[in-house]
C-alpha cells in the first residue's frame, strides 16, 4: 500500500467513467471534493458528509459506495463511475431516466445522482427485484422532496424495461 504523509500533495490517477484521468489531492482530501473541485465533475452531490444521506454515491470498481467517506488517495488506481458517466451511456440510465421523468421521481434533483448510482449497481446484479428490495436499497438515500413513491415506481418500471418487459420507449415524456 502506498504511504503518504500529512499535507503531501499526491498525483492520483483513476479510471473515471471509462477514461483515465489524474489530478492532485492532499492526503486528507475527500473523494467528493476531488471529483467536484479538482476534476470538475459536480454531478456527485454532498448532502451530509457523514455517510447517511447517500447523495454522494458513486461506483467504485462497480460497487456503489459513499464518496464522502473516502479519501481521494484511496481511489488511486481504481475504477470510479459517476452520474456523468451514466448520462453518457445509452442503456441503463436511459431506462431509469425515462422512468424518473414519467413518475416525477425527482423534484429538486439533488438526491437523484446518488440514487441513480446505487440502482445502476443494484439493477445490474438483480434484474427482477421485489418492491421491498427496492425500498431497502432506496433506504440508503434521503430524499426530502418526493416522498419516495415516484422513485419506487420509476425504479420498478425501469427494471422491467431493462428486462425487456415493456416497450423501450414507454412513457418517454
Amino acid at each position: 500500500m502506498r504511504e503518504v504523509t500529512k499535507d503531501e500533495v499526491v498525483r492520483i490517477s483513476l479510471e473515471l467513467n471509462g477514461k483515465t484521468v489524474s489530478g492532485n489531492a492532499t492526503s486528507r482530501m475527500l473523494l467528493t471534493d476531488f471529483l467536484r473541485n479538482e476534476l470538475g465533475l459536480t454531478g456527485t452531490h454532498v448532502g451530509c458528509e457523514h455517510g447517511v444521506c447517500g447523495c454522494c454515491t458513486v461506483r467504485i470498481d462497480g460497487v456503489a459506495a459513499r464518496s464522502c467517506l473516502m479519501l481521494a488517495v484511496q481511489a488511486d488506481g481504481r475504477r470510479i463511475d459517476t452520474v456523468e458517466g451514466l448520462a453518457a451511456s445509452k442503456d441503463a440510465l436511459n431506462a431509469l431516466q425515462r422512468a424518473f421523468r414519467k413518475h416525477h421521481a425527482l423534484q429538486c434533483g439533488f438526491c437523484t445522482a446518488g440514487i441513480l448510482m446505487s440502482f445502476s449497481d443494484f439493477l445490474s446484479r438483480k434484474q427482477n427485484p421485489e418492491e421491498d428490495e427496492v425500498r431497502e436499497v432506496l433506504g440508503g438515500h434521503i430524499c426530502r422532496c418526493t416522498g419516495y413513491d415516484g422513485l419506487v415506481k420509476a425504479i420498478m418500471e425501469a427494471a422491467a424495461e431493462m428486462r425487456g418487459e415493456t416497450p423501450s420507449n414507454a412513457g418517454a415524456a
Binding site: 432506496l138 440508503g140 438515500h141 434521503i142 419516495y148 413513491d149
Partner: peptide, 17 residues
C-alpha cells in the same frame, strides 16, 4: 446534530398513502 440522531424517514418508513 447529525442525520444519525435527526431521523429523516427513508423509503422504508413511508407507508402507502
Amino acid at each position: 446534530g447529525t442525520f444519525a440522531e435527526y431521523l429523516v424517514p427513508t423509503a422504508c418508513e413511508v407507508p402507502p398513502v
